[in-house]
Computed example of a mutant assay.
Amino acid sequence: MTRLISAGRDTVNYPDRGATARRPLPAGYHHLHHRTRIGQGRTVFEAAGTAVTTFRAHRASGVRVRTPGGGAVRPGLRAEVGIGLGPLRITAPCQVIWTAYEPTRTGFAYGTLPGHPECGEESFLVEIDADGAVWFTVTAFSRPDRWYTRLAGPVVPLLQHGYARWLGRHLRALASGA
């Protein structure tokens, strides 16, 4: 069952709350859709789902994630995601918009909060097919919200796609026990 945070309970900086849970993605944004095969079987699915919903996959890929408390993501949870080093670190405040804890799908989406370099939403979803194949999908819509992301122009979508691929590789390693 996909749980969506109710409107008015958050302060995301874009109007299309929850759009990664449905299609088509909203117009006026850059769209990202990247799918990676993670492995095979229920054990891989469960390990990958846990790694995604606890931010373990993000952390393993080199991203710093700060959340209050611990445990699995839930709608309304606020997180600060950081990339880079020292004075070149960019922090990105986010809020979990929806979660999916289902027999064949596990994951979540977070939306950007004021202070994030982009505005939009990104989902991270692990799915298992009827034949047991396990897939990881990153879906996002975003546009620049800071001067430096506007200045970077078309480089930002390339970096986002590269990160989705990088995250998929790390998740595959985590789920396989490597």
Rank of each mutant, 00 (worst) to 15 (best):
Met1Gly: 14
Leu4Lys: 11
Ile5Thr: 14
Ser6Ala: 15
Ser6Thr: 15
Ser6Val: 14
Gly8Gln: 09
Gly8Thr: 05
Val12Asn: 09
Pro15Trp: 12
Pro15Arg: 13
Asp16Val: 12
Thr20Trp: 06
Ala27Glu: 12
Tyr29Arg: 02
His30Gln: 09
His30Lys: 07
His30Pro: 00
His30Tyr: 10
His33Met: 05
His34Phe: 00
His34Asp: 12
His34Asn: 09
Arg35Ser: 08
Thr36Met: 00
Gly39Pro: 01
Gly41Met: 00
Arg42Tyr: 00
Thr43Arg: 00
Val44Asp: 00
Phe45Asn: 03
Ala47Ser: 12
Ala48Met: 04
Thr50His: 12
Ala51His: 07
Ala51Lys: 06
Ala51Tyr: 06
Val52His: 04
Thr53Phe: 00
Phe55Pro: 03
Ala57Gln: 12
Arg59Ser: 12
Ala60Gln: 13
Ser61Cys: 14
Gly62Glu: 12
Gly62His: 08
Gly62Phe: 09
Gly62Thr: 05
Val63Leu: 15
Val63Ile: 15
Arg64Ala: 15
Val65Glu: 08
Val65Ala: 13
Arg66Ser: 13
Thr67Tyr: 00
Pro68Trp: 10
Gly71Trp: 06
Ala72Cys: 11
Pro75Leu: 03
Pro75Phe: 02
Ala79Trp: 01
Ile83Ser: 06
Leu85Asn: 01
Gly86Met: 06
Pro87Gly: 13
Pro87Arg: 14
Leu88His: 04
Arg89Cys: 12
Cys94Asn: 10
Trp98Leu: 01
Trp98Gln: 01
Thr99Gly: 04
Thr99Trp: 01
Ala100His: 02
Ala100Gln: 10
Tyr101Asn: 13
Arg105Ala: 08
Gly107Ser: 03
Tyr110Ser: 03
Leu113Thr: 09
Leu113Pro: 08
Pro114Trp: 05
Gly115Ser: 03
Gly115His: 10
His116Thr: 09
His116Cys: 10
Pro117Met: 03
Cys119Gln: 14
Glu121Lys: 09
Glu121Gly: 05
Glu121Pro: 08
Ser123Trp: 05
Ser123Leu: 05
Glu127Leu: 01
Ile128Thr: 10
Asp129Tyr: 02
Ala130Thr: 12
Ala130Val: 08
Asp131Pro: 05
Gly132Ile: 14
Gly132Asp: 09
Gly132Asn: 11
Thr137Met: 04
Thr137Leu: 02
Thr137Ile: 03
Thr139Arg: 12
Pro144Cys: 13
Asp145Gly: 11
Asp145Cys: 08
Asp145Ser: 15
Arg146Val: 01
Tyr148Asp: 13
Arg150Ile: 07
Pro154Asn: 11
Pro154Thr: 15
Val155Ser: 06
Val156Ser: 02
Pro157Ser: 06
Leu159Ala: 13
Leu159Ile: 11
Gly162Gln: 06
Ala164Ser: 02
Arg165Met: 02
Trp166Pro: 01
Leu167Pro: 01
Gly168Cys: 04
Leu171Val: 10
Gly177Cys: 05
